[in-house]
Design a protein around this nucleic acid. Structure first.
Lengths: 260, 260
DNA sequence: CGGCCAATTGATTAAACTCAATCTGCGTGG
DNA sequence: CCACGCAGATTGAGTTTAATCAATTGGCCG
């Protein structure tokens, strides 16, 4: 049984995922397969890329801001956070890394990481030589287009983060982030109805959304009391997706999950 | 005389740029040339890419959120802003587009723009078929690495924007943005001592930094009274770069202008 | 059972927002 | 040449949102 399946079922026994992708495919294959029709050869290449894996325990840093970064990582299982620390001691989480996401796709000969990354849950990560990623554009045009799509999507996600931080109120920011994570998890088939994994602490959430912990807590309480979300340890249920999208102006088209 | 040179000298007569790159090279050649040694063939290819140009008047939108975007643009002269509008009428500016910057590098067959873009000054833009950008990775490894570096840099810049919005105070945000623009303009040789082009209105700044116009105005006034910056129409002088960097935790290494 | 991390709650303070004018430079039409 | 209009900048006053400070609670692990 995959880590992913175990996770969900372990926490919500008796509830069976309504969308169960073939469990033998890696997350990135499910992700790229959701937007383009992949040949067996392309799938095999992607799976072969991920032979060299690394297990990372929850809480462990695996990329450090300012250090050399000459490796590409593909998140296979688990969640991570990408963040920066300021000299003042404050922290800004830039984005969450979900299964199928790539880190360090655009590393260069002399490049240093411009962020740190830490595992939120126990993770399984593929370690890939960036030159093998370059190979893709030569040999597999469809995969190259897929990677380009991933890059454009990362930009859109980071742009949404800027919109949240700059122009939404506290509760709107929370709602907007929840819907983003829902969209991203649905694309890779890792949702269970409206249940989502939710491994971050309220302190993480505060540092993601540019708020204080206390304020995050109060706004979460309010969302729960109004029966818009249900929070459990490590999981959240979106009881009222419509309310969330209306309050946050979330644009479902924006990160559209183009099916073929 | 190039538009760029004319711009600077027209506003600050008598002041001669201390760093004057060869004026016959396009901005993107100056940018990539600053981080790698380009052969004449590579330079010629880049210049050839930019044969099909478009003049865009200040204030004109040239990319619209949600519309098809199947073209790559290279900014040759002038500034633009990349932004999104929310249904509430609020606006968030994601980043500024400076000479040498590329827009739509990762467009796909079916991709829609996830942001709008408008010219801040009169602009000269090269219109490029995205397939020609793909050609690069096949034929010119050095240029391919350069484009990859551009992409990584865009991510770093957008990440910095998130840090500003999430974890810096109002005046810190202004200082940090000024230093980012200074770094970027220095890389392409378009600064004149500590004078910078500054074509955005205070309303633009407010929508960039997630603040109200009134508050931006008050913080700018304070920076001026403390002799940290000097503001003129369309130009700003950074009187005290040290104060700006100390107050904003700006990391000069982060967007380091690696010279060869 | 003690210790620790995360979550929760109350009270007060501070930063930034909104509303409402006013001012300034600049271009235009009469 | 000058009055008018407009966009952008500036200022004042009162309000709102979210931050800070300070406890307290709830689980979980050793």
């Amino acid at each position: 049984m995959s880590e992913r399946k175990k996770n969900i079922e372990g926490t919500r026994p008796g509830i069976v995922a309504d969308l169960q992708p073939s469990d033998d495919q890696s997350a990135i294959v499910r992700k790229l397969g959701a937007i383009s029709l992949l040949s067996q050869e392309e799938i095999d290449f992607l799976e072969g890329l991920q032979n060299n894996t690394l297990a990372i325990a929850a809480g462990t840093d695996f990329i450090t801001d300012g250090n050399d970064l000459r490796t590409t990582f593909i998140m296979m299982e688990g969640w991570a956070k990408r963040y920066v620390l300021l000299p003042s001691g404050r922290r800004q989480i830039l984005s969450y890394v979900l299964p199928g996401d790539i880190l360090g796709l655009h590393v260069n000969f002399r490049s240093k990481a411009t962020y740190s990354a830490a595992a939120l849950t126990d993770c399984k990560v593929a370690v890939v030589d960036p030159r093998r990623m370059l190979e893709i554009s030569q040999k597999f045009p469809v995969l190259a287009a897929g990677l380009s799509w991933c890059t454009a999507r990362e930009f859109a996600i980071l742009g949404d983060q800027a919109v949240r931080l700059g122009r939404l109120g506290a509760q709107q920011r929370i709602a907007h982030l929840l819907l983003e994570l829902r969209s991203r998890m649905r694309l890779i088939g890792e949702t269970n109805g409206e249940w989502l994994d939710f491994p971050m602490t309220q302190a993480d959430l505060a540092d993601t959304l540019g708020l204080s912990i206390v304020h995050v807590n109060r706004q979460l309480m309010d969302l729960r009391q109004r029966k818009i979300i249900t929070l459990e340890r490590d999981h959240v249920h979106l009881d009222d997706v419509k309310a969330l999208s209306e309050m946050s102006h979330f644009d479902f088209e924006h990160l559209a999950e183009f099916q073929i």
